[in-house]
């Protein structure tokens, strides 16, 4: 009388998918057959049953009984090597869609909708206009931080064409893009500040709209910085405070 691991034999029987292997077993292993048929082999894996003597079958497949559990334990590891986790079926920014006709998951805002907290009721702030005329006063508080922000944005978004001094000799212009007017011409020096905001928002001539690229707050910061650039090219020494004037004189 021997005790063998029927779990192992059962697994082998299960994988062979036929009743043939049972031929070699004595009638007392009927339980295993049942296990096999009901497809619940795994639950019996740890079970050991008493058998009436070693059968040819159990001897022959002893190595399989050892190897199969090993193999079975490796399969889940290999199964984990699929790319599903890497590329999950979810929409990420600008990912490709097989649902929308333009194949883009990023959707445009539907017409006549207002994003939450984005009612934009302040016309002067969001258009640079009040009752159809450009505003002449900056609708936000002028601070050194705003000016610094304006300079940073101007040099990132505008200087490509307008150049860092606002003369309109930016690198892209040197490469053949139509030259924009200098900020230092009288027409633009006298233009109300709302004009600059409007041009950034809606474009002007060959200049495209920057509404999607520059936030309204940043557009005002840029407009304020353009004013500073204009001042820098048209300042008189007499505009300075007396102390500053004396400092200037001593540098000469």
């Amino acid at each position: 009388m021997n005790i063998i691991n029927t779990g192992a034999s059962a697994r082998w029987i299960y994988t062979s998918d036929s009743a043939q292997p049972f031929q070699g077993l004595s009638p007392s292993v009927e339980t295993i057959k049942t296990v096999c048929r009901s497809h619940h082999v795994c639950h019996r894996a740890e079970a050991a049953v008493l058998m009436t003597g070693p059968t040819e079958l159990s001897k022959r497949n002893k190595w399989l009984g050892r190897a199969l559990p090993l193999l079975l334990s490796i399969i889940p590891l290999i199964a984990a090597c699929r790319r599903d986790m890497m590329n999950q079926p979810k929409a990420k920014p600008l990912s490709e869609s097989d649902f929308f006709s333009d194949q883009a998951n990023a959707r445009p805002i539907p017409p006549h909708t207002v994003a939450w907290r984005n009612a934009r009721e302040n016309d002067a702030f969001y258009t640079g206009l009040t009752n159809g005329t450009y505003i002449t006063e900056l609708p936000v508080k002028l601070t050194p931080a705003l000016m610094a922000r304006g300079r940073e944005r101007f040099e990132a978004m505008c200087a490509e064409c307008h150049d860092r001094t606002g003369s309109g000799n930016g690198m892209v212009v040197l490469r053949g893009f139509p030259q924009p007017p200098s900020y230092h011409v009288p027409r633009l020096r006298n233009a109300p500040i709302g004009h600059f905001f409007d041009v950034i928002t809606n474009g002007y001539g060959v200049m495209y709209s920057y509404a999607t690229r520059v936030e309204p707050e940043d557009r005002w910061a840029i407009a304020a910085y353009i004013r500073a650039l204009q001042l820098s090219h048209n300042a008189n020494a007499s505009d300075l405070a007396v102390a500053e004037q004396q400092k200037l004189e001593s540098r000469k």
Binding site: E155, E160, M171, T212
Partner: peptide, 20 residues
């Protein structure tokens, strides 16, 4: 060659998880 800033095209890099 053209001196274009990163943010000129990748506009959302400072505001969003995605640079754009």
């Amino acid at each position: 060659d053209d001196g274009i800033d990163c943010r000129y095209c990748h506009t959302s890099v400072e505001k969003s998880s995605f640079a754009g």
